[in-house]
């Protein structure tokens, strides 16, 4: 009798704990959003000029006479780095996921999965450091350019950062394809590669799209590594060798030096709202795409 009572209490306690955890996560997210919006609101309703914000590349919040708040160069900076990162990460992670999911067996497979997870756990400042030191001099040597901190550098670093997550999610998607499909195709005389290209990849399509989207989300939100590897100079890039500046890096670098409540401070929060909305949309899309699979 006693034992059962104890179990019952533990059961209840855990239930409450889980409930509190879940609710507080939701409350926190709402809280964060409210906070960001509140801080940025003053700017949005007064100084904010949508046309300037989205079309002007001039981000000069500290100018004494005429501060301008054009975020175009920052948006393009983030987009170009993320775009390049995805171009690099997609083939890598798809290849890795196919190898791990369809070819590797037993020990090899387990070891590779652990390695990928380890890769995902490398702190972003370490990646930034690799970009700043190794990649920088490598790019200068290889391409004979004056500076190695640019779109190429940040894109490669970000691609390497996004690849592990994309690999893990893509591999899950491949694993979710019923083995009966593979067996049916093999029995019909399909080779390993035909099975992969004609059956497995099409069947896993949604999961793979979600993997890429989450990688994109990661790219938009990444700050430290991008700040260190991109050169951090305001620029509309015309080639991958141009330095750029990212939205996130701008916030990280400038927020500490602005007076709370000033226009500049609020403008940074507006950038934050913008980032929040974009990553939220990307993650939501990824989630909906994934949900699409489960319904089937």
């Amino acid at each position: 009798m006693d034992r059962r009572d104890l179990d019952w209490y533990i059961d209840k306690a855990v239930q409450i704990l889980v409930f509190v955890g879940g609710v507080s996560a939701i409350l926190l997210i709402i809280g964060i959003f409210v906070f960001i919006t509140k801080e940025g609101a003053g700017f949005l309703t007064t100084t904010f000029d949508a046309k300037e914000f989205f079309t002007s590349p001039r981000w000069r919040p500290t100018s004494e006479h005429n501060p301008t708040y054009g975020a175009l160069a920052l948006i393009v900076g983030t987009a170009s780095i993320t775009g390049l990162a995805i171009l690099i990460a997609v083939p890598f992670s798809l290849g890795a996921a196919i190898y791990i999911g369809e070819f590797a067996t037993g020990k090899t497979r387990e070891i590779l999965k652990v390695l990928v997870e380890l890769l995902a756990a490398i702190p972003s400042v370490v990646w930034g450091f690799i970009g700043l030191s190794i990649m920088n001099s490598l790019i200068i040597k290889l391409f004979d350019v004056p500076v190695g901190l640019n779109v190429l550098n940040a894109g490669v670093i970000l691609g390497l950062m996004a690849a592990p997550i994309m690999t893990t999610i893509a591999e899950d998607a491949l694993k979710a394809v019923p083995d009966g499909y593979r067996e049916a195709a093999e029995a019909l005389g399909a080779t390993r590669w035909q099975v992969i290209f004609k059956v497995v990849l099409p069947a896993a399509k949604n999961g793979l799209v979600a993997a890429v989207l989450l990688g994109v989300g990661r790219g938009f939100g990444e700050t430290m590594a991008v700040l260190m590897a991109s050169g951090h100079s305001i620029n509309l890039p015309t080639s991958v060798f141009d330095s750029v500046r990212a939205l996130t890096a701008t916030i990280a670098a400038e927020l500490g030096e602005t007076a709370v409540g000033s226009d500049h401070y609020r403008a940074l929060f507006t950038l934050g709202i913008f980032l929040f909305l974009i990553t939220f949309l990307i993650n939501l899309t990824a989630d909906l795409v994934l949900r699409g699979i489960r319904k089937k």
């Binding site: 499909y181 049916a184 005389g189």
Partner: peptide
């Protein structure tokens, strides 16, 4: 190619009816 197999549980591929029929041929 010479030996076709039918499984215990029907296992059509996640394709259209037409693509299922033509799948082996295309391979």
């Amino acid at each position: 190619k010479q030996v076709g197999m039918v499984f215990q549980r029907p296992n059509p591929l996640p394709l259209s009816i037409r693509d299922n029929v033509i799948f082996g041929y295309r391979l």
